[in-house]
């Protein structure tokens, strides 16, 4: 019962988040897309760095 309550709460929170996200202005949405781009660039850099590190470990 408790779990069901928590699940429903999470679904409601998610629905509210999506409703808020749709209510943003176009400028705000584009700003959020820019943040997503920056985050994925950083993630790619970190993955590349990790790959290089792993390769250097394999050589030794």
């Amino acid at each position: 019962m408790d779990n069901q309550h928590l699940f429903e709460q999470a679904v409601r929170a998610k629905a509210a988040y999506h409703k808020d996200a749709r209510a943003l202005t176009w400028e705000e949405k584009v700003a959020s897309i820019e943040r997503m781009r920056e985050a994925s660039t950083e993630a790619r850099k970190a993955m590349s760095k990790a790959r290089q590190h792993n390769q250097s470990l394999n050589k030794t």
């Binding site: 176009w26 949405k29 584009v30 959020s32 897309i33 997503m36 994925s40």
Partner: peptide
């Protein structure tokens, strides 16, 4: 594309 779509719907990631 995604930028045009974001005028109408929730923003999604694009490069």
């Amino acid at each position: 594309g995604a930028i045009g779509a974001s005028f109408y719907i929730e923003a999604t990631s694009t490069e």
